[in-house]
Design a protein around this nucleic acid. Structure first.
Lengths: 186, 204
DNA sequence: GCTTTAAAAAGTAACGT
DNA sequence: ACGTTACTTTTCAAAGC
């Protein structure tokens, strides 16, 4: 059975962690090749890993935000690289810092074009934001799982706000069911 | 106790002044947009409801007033684009859109998506186009919307393309630039929507 | 609320050629 | 009239203004 759920692709994973140690970002900016640090602009130092491709925001408190990774494994790999780089610089890093996934962005394809006008009314104007003058996607806030889904006329969708890998799958099954019940799924 | 009394009066006066300012701003912007008095009244009601439900806290009075007017135009079936509303407001378009979404949600306005057909009479008359062109543009919008071409597209661009196509079909040709100017969209957008609509109509 | 980072979706806009 | 780049929307953490 190949359905919309099989078309789900994780596009971005955001996670947070901490090394349990305060950092001197000025010194770190000098010691870490490729680091971007503009304290006037933003308090975090930006460091990008190449493989896996990800970007980390490193803060004075030792807390770190990792974003841009394509999977949870990639988040762990990217942060592992960063932890090792810090240890190389003689900065004490906790043995296994706890990594918390904060947000997962996925895309999927429902396989049919969507009439967004009919969908806005069918799904309930109170739960829908559809302002094509400002953005071509219909914004649907789902309570369970608690995610936000962007639906497009092409049938392509974006699921964001989930913290678990299977939130996207559950959400896609749910939205397909709701659209189908309205008779709006081609 | 006297101080408390004075503060109440001060707060009440400040509130009155703010309300008066908001209502006069709605009036000023409505005049500039050329919307009828009934729409200004609807906008005033929306503003007062937002005020009563404490939706203005953390937002600018002008932003809420502008959004109330934008919402009122839609509710009354004579929408103005965010661009048009932003032109007569001192609030940036982005804030108007954000504030509109907020008050619309909180007040449960439940306004349907803007229908491109609602822009046809105003745009067409600004271009001195006949009743016949308007009817044709309306037909083009209906036919292409039924074929699913409207999803995700800007209502103003969709209306502009239909008017351009109708002006050609009725031998009252307007250039893409002329139509683009009144609808405040680019010629590129008109061209793109026009091509799809002509195909939907079975021409080509 | 803002600042920064990443990513997808599709439409619109503004460049330069 | 191309092509490219960039902006719109959503989500989330971080520290500080």
């Amino acid at each position: 059975m190949s359905g919309p759920a099989d078309s789900i692709e994780i596009q971005n994973v955001v996670a947070s962690t901490g090394i349990g140690q305060e950092l001197d970002l000025e010194a770190l900016a000098d010691d870490l090749p490729g680091a971007d640090f503009n304290p006037d602009n933003f308090p975090g130092l930006v460091y990008r890993t190449q493989d896996p491709k990800a970007a980390a925001l490193i803060f004075r408190s030792g807390k770190i935000v990792c974003t841009g990774a394509k999977s949870i494994d990639d988040v762990h790999d990217a942060l592992g690289i960063i932890f090792d780089k810090l240890r190389e610089l003689k900065i004490p890093v906790d043995d296994e810092p706890e990594i918390t996934v904060q947000n997962i962005v996925s895309s999927a394809d429902l396989g049919h074009n969507l009439n967004l006008n009919a969908l806005a009314i069918g799904l309930g104007l109170e739960d829908v934001e559809y302002e094509p003058e400002q953005f071509p996607g219909l914004v649907y806030r789902m309570d369970e799982p608690k995610v936000v889904i962007l639906l497009f006329g092409s049938g392509k969708i974006v699921i964001t706000g989930g913290k678990r890998t299977d939130d996207a799958e559950t959400a896609v099954e749910e939205i397909v069911e709701r659209i189908d019940a309205l008779g709006l799924l081609g | 106790r006297l101080r408390k009394w004075q503060e109440r009066i001060r707060t009440k006066d400040a509130g009155e002044r703010n309300l008066q300012f908001a209502l006069s701003e709605i009036d000023r912007m409505a005049s500039a947009l050329g919307v009828p008095r009934s729409v200004r009244e609807v906008a005033s009601v929306i503003y007062r409801r937002a005020l009563n439900e404490d939706l203005i806290r953390g937002r600018s009075i002008e932003g809420v007033a502008t959004s109330a007017l934008y919402a009122a135009c839609r509710q009354e079936g004579i929408p103005r684009s965010l661009d048009e509303v932003a032109e007569v407001s001192r609030v940036p378009q982005k804030e108007i859109g954000r504030t509109y979404r907020y008050i619309s949600q909180e007040l449960g306005l439940e306004l349907k998506p803007v229908d491109p057909k609602q822009f046809v009479p105003r745009f067409a008359s600004a271009l001195d186009l006949s009743e016949e062109v308007q009817a044709k543009a309306t037909e083009i919008i209906d036919v292409s919307a039924e074929q699913g071409l409207l999803s995700g597209k800007s209502p103003t661009g969709f209306a502009a393309a239909a008017i351009y196509a109708a002006s050609l079909l009725c031998n009252e040709k307007k250039t893409q630039r002329e139509v683009a100017d009144v609808a405040q969209v680019t010629e590129v957008t008109i061209r793109n929507r026009y091509q799809e609509q002509i195909e939907a109509m079975g021409f080509r």
